[in-house]
Design a protein around this nucleic acid. Structure first.
Length: 509
RNA sequence: GCGCCUGUAGCUCAAUUGGAUAGAGCGACAGACUACGGAUCUGUAGGUUGUGGGUUCAAAUCCCGCCGGGCGCACCA
């Protein structure tokens, strides 16, 4: 403030800061003193009374410490992963899942009402192709020489499903009419895939509120109604036998086809219809987490919503950048055709849920991420996930020890001689703990879950440092009680932070 | 060619959104209490923030040019 004012009043920052300080009237129970530093910064030093109160607040709130009412109950729909039901989830899906789930939790903690949603693309060409691919595998399993369709799905998972199909149904399906069989197979294979994806995500500790079916949307003719509505609003025109959305009116770089000249719809119409449907369900704000290959799609989608009369900022898109798998220094090539393909299931089995989530959350969503398979699997100090969990386990261990040795922890903040907590490591730890609710709020507003990881690392570091410098269970009973109190507060914050990240908090490791 | 993301220590990344001496982890090196878990702690070395300009009290951050990396630019989904 002093520095930005300095120019206006033709003075320098420090002088303005001095003037501000002279006229300040502060409640000295919270503010100890004010200093001027550097080019004119005003540093307010909080009193230990403030810190004591902040600590008591943690104790009082326990598992709800960190929650604020910032979002005022505003309803947010967060859509993420939404992988096609044409195969197992992959590594990029795992990143989106970690980021989306954590972000949802953070927003909930900040006072928003959040719904997690997965959009199932169970209609359209790719699932037809999937059904045809399965038919070929099914016939092969029955001994026929049936080739896969061109560009068909070659993954091994279809072989397994085909085998199962033969056990369950025998050759019964061959007796059906071609169209009947196609529909049957399509329904069957899509539900298999969706169930598989659900299970993978559940293993990840992630449960969606809604699995929204594109097919159901099309059966209601929502996409057709949407085109009609856009026509009535005057944003549709005909050219070369196709219907175009005038998306350039809303910032897109060219207009987009919604109905092709052969009468088929492009993907855009159902997608706009879907997002309209979200808003019709009463959500105030929509967040989509998309892969980088979809970023070109965002403008036209937003244009569609704006053409319907919604403000452009109801839709917010977070692009989760690509993931590169690495073993040490070796890049793992992933190709669906020949080489190595690592599914999310394999990743989870290999590295475990906690390490996976931790690694994916560690980086900003917008950054290109190297996931080191060797490191994630390593159960040693090189793996940062254990740094935080170890701090938590250590605290639990202290309390086990305290119980055995007859230490009696305080039954509330009033019993604690707070002034005994004055080591630099204790002060540092308390400052961090006091910042948690503000951190959660800032992090959710910025949509940067990676900062939650950073925060946890800082708390863990402060705790480890405290643990090394200050013996908790010692001769002085008052001091021990105060330090047990601090350990308890730290435990609460770590537990709450880990819960937000979807990472477990082990009592021992 | 156009658009989005990106370039910071040997490696992987931060930097409170324009603030103070650019910080962590890993790796390297040197150390640590005969008690609460050494998966820990305390230090040291390591930087012209890709590059050249500009904006201002202040730039890793904003603007312009150039160089490198990733991903997109369909009457596909």
């Amino acid at each position: 403030m002093a520095m930005s004012l300095a120019g206006e009043v033709k003075s320098d920052g420090r002088s303005v800061a001095g003037a501000i300080v002279r006229y300040l009237s502060l409640d000295d129970s919270w503010i100890q003193r004010v200093d001027i530093a550097g080019p004119g910064f005003l540093n307010f030093f909080l009193s230990s009374g403030w810190l004591e109160k902040a600590m008591a607040d943690i104790w009082k709130k326990g598992p709800t410490y960190g929650r604020t009412g910032y979002g005022k109950g505003k309803r947010i729909l967060l859509e993420f992963v939404s992988a096609n039901p044409t195969g197992p989830l992959n590594v990029v899906n795992a990143r989106a899942a970690a980021v989306g789930d954590c972000l949802a939790s953070l927003l909930e903690a900040s006072g928003y009402e959040v719904s997690r949603e997965f959009y199932v693309n169970d209609a359209g060409h790719q699932v037809d192709l999937l059904a045809d691919s399965l038919e070929a595998r099914y016939r092969q399993a029955l001994g026929e020489d049936a080739p896969l369709p061109e560009n068909g799905y070659q993954g091994e998972y279809l072989l397994d499903i085909a085998k199962e199909l033969v056990t369950e149904e025998g050759d019964r399906l061959l007796g059906l009419l071609a169209e009947e069989r196609h529909q049957w197979l399509k329904g069957y294979v899509v539900s298999c895939m969706v169930e598989q994806q659900k299970k993978t995500l559940l293993d990840y500790g992630l449960k969606y509120d809604t699995w929204y079916s594109e097919k159901s949307l099309r059966e209601r003719k929502a996409h057709e109604a949407l085109v009609e509505e856009l026509k009535e609003r005057g944003f549709i025109y005909e050219k070369d036998g196709a219907l175009w959305l005038r998306s350039t009116d809303f910032g897109d770089d060219k207009d987009r086809v919604v109905v092709k000249s052969d009468g088929e719809m492009t993907y855009l119409a159902p997608d706009i219809a879907y997002h309209k449907d979200k808003l019709m369900r009463g959500f105030d704000h929509l967040i989509d987490i998309l892969g980088p290959d979809h970023h070109g799609y965002v403008d036209r989608l937003r244009a569609g919503l704006m053409a319907l009369g919604y403000p452009g900022d109801v839709l917010e898109v977070i692009i989760a950048q690509t993931v590169r798998l690495v073993r040490g220094k070796q890049v793992v090539k992933m190709s669906k055709r020949g080489g190595e393909f690592i599914s999310m299931d394999e990743l989870l089995e290999d590295a475990g849920k906690d390490a996976c989530r931790f690694f994916f959350l560690m980086r900003a969503p917008s950054s290109h991420l190297d996931f080191d398979l060797d490191l994630a699997r390593l159960q040693s100090n090189e793996n940062p996930v254990y740094y935080v969990q170890y701090a938590y386990a250590r605290i639990a261990s202290i309390f086990r020890q305290a119980g055995q040795e007859g230490f009696v922890p305080a039954s509330g903040p009033n019993e604690v001689k707070f002034s005994l907590l004055r080591d630099s490591s204790e002060i540092q730890l308390m400052k961090l703990l006091a910042a948690f609710p503000e951190e959660v709020r800032d992090i959710s507003v910025a949509r940067e879950p990676n900062r939650l990881i950073k925060y946890m690392m800082n708390v863990a570091a402060a705790f480890h440092s405290f643990y090394t410098r200050c013996r908790v269970l010692g001769e002085d009973k008052d001091l021990s009680a105060a330090r047990l109190y601090l350990a308890r507060l730290c435990q609460i914050v770590l537990a709450n932070a880990l819960r937000l990240a979807g990472i477990s908090a082990p009592d021992s490791m």
